[in-house]
Design a binder for these strands. Structure first.
Lengths: 232, 232
DNA sequence: TGCGATTTTATGTGCATACATATTAATTTT
DNA sequence: AAAATTAATATGTATGCACATAAAATCGCA
């Protein structure tokens, strides 16, 4: 009945998680070191290491060299959100994706945007569009693109392909930033999304960089009722 | 000038990311296999594997046995949100954390809750509280706890310690679910948070399970202007 | 006693090797 | 020609070993 033999890192991970959840290893506890665990589980230290690393990545364990591994006291839940391209998001709901370009201008942006994108007085490409699910408004996209950083964008009308998808395919980038928030719909936004004014909208603000240069800044406004789910 | 020598997996990862971002390996492209890359980078296959695995986890690479590794066409951005305990969140902002319990009842919950928590007619512990940052309302917590699953909760008044923290320390759980959304403040919520009625509130709904049993269900309402940030 | 230098220790990582597994490609059989 | 079998191949992972690194614990000396 002994030696259940944990031969692969997944089963070690499962056992470690079990012990944590069952409070056999309580929050704050120092757990045995890798060598001892390897001995107990009957596998190599590498295998234990792999498992513990995985659990630590999920935030349930704190590991420090020499100090050892302990169960996190307040495991700041790490939720991994996958933010798909809107088309995919809609199609995965089993709905028909629709796209309508609302605006495409080369204009000098408001100060907040020009400051963020380091465009001092220079005109940027402003593209607004509506994403539809089964003909109904799903999300409103308000985007600024720097033509100096993405020259090809000037040749594109964005009438049939969303800037969302076009940029993914054509604009290199190095990193980005995402901000989630809730905002009240302005009159224009309410009109575009077909919802009452001051409705609570879920918004995603995203800035994408290529080195020092800001490639694009986009605000996505989702209609009332929109949810983003994830498991722990 | 050759052989920049990539001796550790992080530097291999950096180089791989560079190639992807620079479009040397374009979206959809099949990249060289691990053995070849190891040869090129002058390191062991294990090292390349570790690097590619890490990049694949971030969603930028698709890997399949025998089929090889290719650059993701539409890299559904994976944003890892760390949702800290509210106290920590506030203290990390450099503000003073405050806590005020608003309610603690053992009552039969509304249908939606009783259904979710499988409590058919049975009373559950209902705890409402306000989290303050520098004396100002920061978030409103509306929580239901199943006393059959967490017996200890009945003895706790939650007057000085938030259910948030108490449960983390005392209630084992196996998994959970998080939903983000934007909702309009009801009159009560607006009053509690000190914001105008129908203000857009960022909400986090969380359900925590221990095996089949629902441990707790909580709704967190954040005041206007609340943001959740993450990098890509 | 106080404090800097040294040792100890647990994790972090690299490497060579072997084998496992999934999947495609090729080959043989029907 | 279609189906079933077999081979080839890229990734997945286990193992033993060595050494790196961070940080705690200890020692030594003033």
């Amino acid at each position: 009945m002994n030696t259940p033999s944990f031969r692969n890192w997944q089963s070690v991970q499962t056992e470690v998680l079990r012990r944590i959840h069952a409070r056999e290893w309580a929050p704050g506890d120092l757990i045995p070191n890798e060598v001892d665990l390897a001995l107990e589980f009957g596998c190599a230290r590498t295998t234990v290491n792999r498992a513990l690393r995985a659990v630590a990545e999920s935030g349930l364990l704190d590991r420090r060299r020499k100090a050892g591994t302990r169960v996190a006291v307040q495991p700041a839940a790490k939720a991994t959100l996958t933010i798909p391209v809107i088309r995919n998001e809609i199609e995965e709901l089993g709905k028909i994706y629709g796209y309508r370009r609302v605006k495409r201008d080369l204009t000098v942006p408001p100060v907040a945007v020009s400051q963020l994108m380091h465009s001092a007085g220079r005109p940027l490409l402003h593209v607004c569009a509506l994403h539809l699910a089964d003909e109904l408004p799903y999300a409103f996209e308000d985007r600024w693109i720097d033509p100096d950083v993405v020259p090809g964008a000037l040749k594109e009308s964005f009438e049939t392909i969303s800037a969302n998808e076009w940029l993914l395919r054509h604009a290199p980038y190095t990193h980005g930033e995402i901000v989630f928030a809730a905002t009240s719909a302005t009159r224009d936004e309410a009109a575009a999304l077909g919802c009452p004014e001051t409705a609570a909208l879920f918004t995603i603000d995203r800035v994408t960089w290529d080195g020092d240069a800001v490639v694009t800044k986009v605000r996505l406004l989702f209609g009332p009722g929109h949810k983003i789910c994830t498991v722990l």
